[in-house]
Design a protein around this nucleic acid. Structure first.
Lengths: 235, 235
DNA sequence: AATTAGGTTTAACCTAACGTTAACAAAAGA
DNA sequence: TCTTTTGTTAACGTTAGGTTAAACCTAATT
């Protein structure tokens, strides 16, 4: 699964500063869209989904607060960070009232900005990631639930799997129809690669074959000296 | 539903400043526990649930960063705000690395602090709402009222539950049909994870199973080495 | 101060679950 | 054929969990 860059909307009217900041953020693997004023900022915001908005407060025609309000009407979740010219208390308070997540006084340290962005993104990530289901596999007529450690055949009564059985089958499933090297399982699951752990693993392969017997289309093949292969035959 | 004051852990070694800040926060309807150093701070943190931690960075024996790390080990969600003596860039960066949500340079404006707290709480509120404020559960033919601590079967005579029975069943219900990790219950309910608390929990699992016996469709399954699973069978 | 009741922890004993190892058989490769 | 690798089953030791009962603690009551 390739990692998608986070998208940032930067609204800053100072062309020099804006460009420098944009480049700096892009150097740090963010996708940045730079709008030169509040109006343009809102247009760009409506046209795409962003992970973060960085808004300058002092801008002609439409200031950062007004823009923030409009953005909040459209989307009440997207994090907003303000750039304030100086440590004006009123600005800071107003920013939070509008629903800011943070603010930065110009001139600011670019590393600090990066850290703030990171912290904010992490916060968001926690909510989202939660139920990414990488622990459910379909193996022929079986369903493996690797979190709850059970294997169901045709939706019937689930067999409980031991931790090692579970991890090994999961590893095989991740490499479905492909070679799952001995060594991989040994280092990942047994955390040690020697004669005995290797024999132990063979014992578990035998156990898994027994579990998988009900579906003749599913089998674990050995590749001599290399490892195993979980194949699902679709004749 | 009456609104519960938010609980803040304030760790600040300067007695004057600490007391003033505490009073100010309490005037603004927060419940504040004031610890005078890092050690005390961690003890207090373990003994209760907090909505926010405000940590002074400069403290004797155990500084704010070290304390934050310990807190993060126990709880990776609770927001942490640092108080830094001056705008030291290194401190700020270090703070974010440790998992801070924000920081404030002393001397800071009290109104700004309040706004930051509010912003942080609001952020949290969004994630938490679904989970935390749930007190009534339907568990097969049972009704659990976790606030009044009783369990009714088929609307009949309610059994009273002890605090531990209640919290454990509630935690199981929150994870209905899913894994409720041992460690979660131990840290959340027993606030300590060792052999004896673990055995104590097993005793309570036995008690709950007895309560739940009248409905054969409801059971508490064990996932060896991981935790328990409250399942409701709908055949 | 002594008693009681409710709640929780600790102890004890037992069973189930897990993983490793041994032993022997079969297959593959040289 | 001979060696190495793999397949499989059974036995064993260890740890986790299930359950009951007694011990312990604390707060309310006498």
């Amino acid at each position: 699964m390739e990692e998608q860059n986070k998208k940032i909307l930067l609204v800053e009217d100072d062309p020099n500063f804006g460009t420098v900041l944009k480049d700096y953020l892009m150097m740090n693997d963010y996708d940045v869209v730079h709008a030169k004023n509040g109006m343009e900022g809102f247009e760009k915001f409506k046209k795409d989904d962003y992970d973060l908005c960085i808004l300058d407060v002092m801008m002609p025609y439409k200031d950062g607060f007004t823009l923030a309000k409009e953005i909040r009407e459209k989307n009440e979740d997207v994090p907003i960070v303000f750039l304030t010219a100086k440590a004006m208390k009123e600005d800071v308070l107003k920013g939070y009232k509008v629903g800011a997540d943070d603010y930065l006084n110009k001139p600011f340290d670019s590393e600090v900005l990066l850290m703030k962005i990171k912290a904010i993104m992490q916060r968001k990530a926690k909510d989202t990631v939660a139920d990414s289901k990488q622990f459910e596999f379909k193996i022929g007529r079986f369903d493996l639930n690797s979190k709850l450690r059970f294997l169901k055949f045709d939706g019937g009564d689930p067999s409980k799997l031991s931790p090692k059985e579970n991890e090994l089958l999961r590893l095989l499933a991740l490499h479905e129809n492909d070679l799952m090297p001995r060594e991989l399982a040994l280092t990942k699951i047994w955390r040690d690669d020697n004669y005995f752990t290797s024999r132990s693993m063979d014992v578990y392969i035998a156990k898994l074959r027994k579990y998988l017997k009900p579906d003749p289309k599913v089998e674990i093949l050995n590749i001599h000296g290399e490892g195993f292969r979980l194949v699902i035959n679709n004749d």
